[in-house]
Design a protein around this nucleic acid. Structure first.
Lengths: 242, 242, 242, 242
DNA sequence: CATGAATGAGAGTTCATTCAT
DNA sequence: AATGAATGAACTCTCATTCAT
């Protein structure tokens, strides 16, 4: 079945990004990070651990990863782990925080010099899907952890909400400009359409990849962008369809 | 992020259900089920275990459930479990199999005596969402297990595919009748739109419920049906929109 | 220095034992004992564990005892421990509970057919000291644990209080009969004199024993009884001293 | 139960303090102290560590104190600890040595210009109890460590013995002067009575304090002195009681 | 001398699975 | 068929001590 549409795609319209006045405070494993190491050596070790953690997590999954797998990969002693993190959750938080930039702001995706909503939408979706593909392993990981650790469920929810709200603003803007169907509630529509794209991304880059076999055709990235964009545009009844 | 759209909704058109010619063989925990108990007492114990398992799974989640929790709930000895199941996966398979009927065939959802595609679509979505809501706890469980046990991931995929294929047939049919946009690939469109509805369902009946707080308004079921149906119809460019 | 006079000696006068109306409810590791095993085999294993625990505790001390030392001594698997006890504290509680009878009620100590306070006092002290000697290892253990685990500190306190109150009643009785100095507060005096005897017992049977070397004379048990009784009697100004 | 009467009180008679001919050599953690730091900075660091150690020991107890707690409290690096001490025992030895003066020689306690044994005894007890009260936290600590580290058990024993021997000399002296009961062995009686006072002190200043609650009356210091002194005097049958 | 990160042995605890009764 | 105690591998986390900087 479907899951949260936390990381959602959509339309990066010209509406300015709201200064996130409603920004919620970070939750536990993200906030409780220990004070960063003071020495260079410490920084190196910590970085090695985060890198190793990401590798092992992506390879074995969150649950099957033992702390010693991480320290082994990072070539340090088991105890050293605890110099930097209190437990598995905390390393994962560090891993996600480190990747967040690329996962949240997948390049602007703005098409310079055009107002054409369709072009904007397509570029936005392409950027989203590309970022998802780049971080597919991590997204798969996040899906898994969200099923198991409430803090990460919350994390996923917040990220999804950010996308959804952004897209809702875009929809509202188009409605105001007479470009989009005024009958639908922007938030609801955004939830649905953003969710639609994120499910497609998950299916294409997480599920399909993992069971890729001989005969399987690789995912048709451009076809994905096109379909998704067309459906989105139709759904909002953009005028002048091709 | 999104997840599999395994259990997907959509349009139950008049196209007859294909005799699942491509029907895949059942996977491990479903196929290897032990032979049913011969005695009456055995049947009673087994039933008690399945019932207890469902209760505990839904309450504690798959991972946090210990086999002794189940036997305790079923008021039988730890060892008795192994008379009927080889492990946790197998009870879960039994639980799912027992609930499958309602989860897969959510009532016909067919609107008798009408050809109006919009009405059919709406009825179909309503039926899907109602079934999802009824089995929300179980759907949440399935989502969780799918992240952890490959066999159930496969199970989820197949269920999703069934819906997707059914809806794809519906879309193709409408295209043939000139009612739906011929530019989109029926399978792709079905994936996207079916996924859209399943994400909405997951968000509404799993995520929203679990963090329900005082101030929170309960999910607006009819609004959900309406929005989802409208977007779906728009996306396929049904003619004559209201 | 001295420690609590929890297990204290004294005079078992003819004053009837109060029905412990003020009896406090048992504290954690004593009350939370798991339900006793239902089968014979279970009872046997549990008993073996308690016996092994007592042996190892007395030999190695509470802190240096590992749970595996106990299970090894009891010839059972590490995990079996947890069938009966939640942790080290709980086995110790079981050990103490099992020994409590002998430690608390060291035979009545009453001298039949005499009213002579001095004779009663002497018999009482002899009985106390004999019980202390019999359970010296356990008393040493209790002293150690009381320094480390609050629950056992409380346990020690309660046992001491029981003796102190019993002796205070004896003193009050003698005061009423004109046999004891009326100037002293019975409770205070009881604390002091009961404490005096318990320190002597600890020094004689715990400390002296443990560093017994070649040249050391063994503890003069009768001398101990005599001195302690004489000082006690003097302190309360029993009349007609020999 | 009772414990060692190491730090014992009593009568500081006019008998001259023996030149400790039998003085035993210091034991390990006390003897093996490293040579004092040469630089001023070193001295400062060491002093900070000892001070911090005392604070943390008294607050958390010996066992629950980690070396890093001490260095943190002293605001120095973990490694610096080992410049001055080999381990936890050694810091504790340093802490005790620093406090020893006040704990061992609690002011003279001598009553100038009187021969009245009762007055001398009372003054001596008052001084002892006052010193105990002043150093209650440290005495509690010593009790704890003595249960765990043989060297400190020995330390406690020696301190107790010093008091006991001193008081035994006092008793013998009084016996010679015809003031005390000649029937009791001075050493034995000293053990008992010195122990009695030390238990009372432990109960009053360590145990009672730690569980002080709202309703609890604070310890009646003067009452304690009076009772203890009266019982002691009675026990030795001082003549002319009030 | 001071620093603070690195080390790694070792303890407690969980729970699926087995098996004697 | 049912029972429930026994098993033991596996994993996390602590902290005294060392040592490169």
């Amino acid at each position: 079945m479907a899951s949260d549409s936390s990381k959602v795609p959509g339309m990066d319209t010209t509406v300015p990004e709201e200064t996130d006045s409603e920004a919620a405070p970070p939750v536990a494993p993200f906030s409780q990070l220990r004070e960063p190491p003071t020495t260079q050596r410490g920084a190196r070790t910590r970085a090695a651990l985060v890198k190793a953690a990401r590798k092992v997590f992506e390879r074995d999954g969150y649950l099957d990863t033992r702390l010693t797998d991480i320290t082994k990969e990072a070539r340090c002693a088991a105890g050293s782990f605890y110099t930097y993190f209190a437990n598995k959750e905390e390393v994962l938080a560090a891993v996600l925080l480190e990747a967040q930039e690329d996962m949240m702001h997948p390049g602007t995706g703005r098409v310079q010099g055009t107002d054409d909503p369709y072009a904007v939408l397509e570029a936005s979706n392409r950027a989203y899907l590309a970022a998802y593909k780049r971080n597919a392993k991590l997204m798969a990981l996040l899906e898994q952890v969200a099923q198991v650790e409430p803090e990460f469920r919350e994390f996923r929810r917040r990220r999804g909400d950010a996308f959804i709200r952004r897209n809702a603003r875009g929809i509202a803007d188009l409605q105001a400009r007479g470009v989009a169907d005024r009958e639908v509630d922007p938030m609801m529509a955004s939830r649905a359409l953003s969710g639609m794209v994120s499910v497609m991304a998950y299916n294409a880059f997480v599920l399909s990849e993992e069971q890729e076999q001989e005969g399987d055709a690789p995912v048709d990235f451009e076809g994905l962008v096109t379909t998704v964009t067309r459906l989105w545009a139709n759904a909002l009844r953009f005028p002048g369809h091709r």
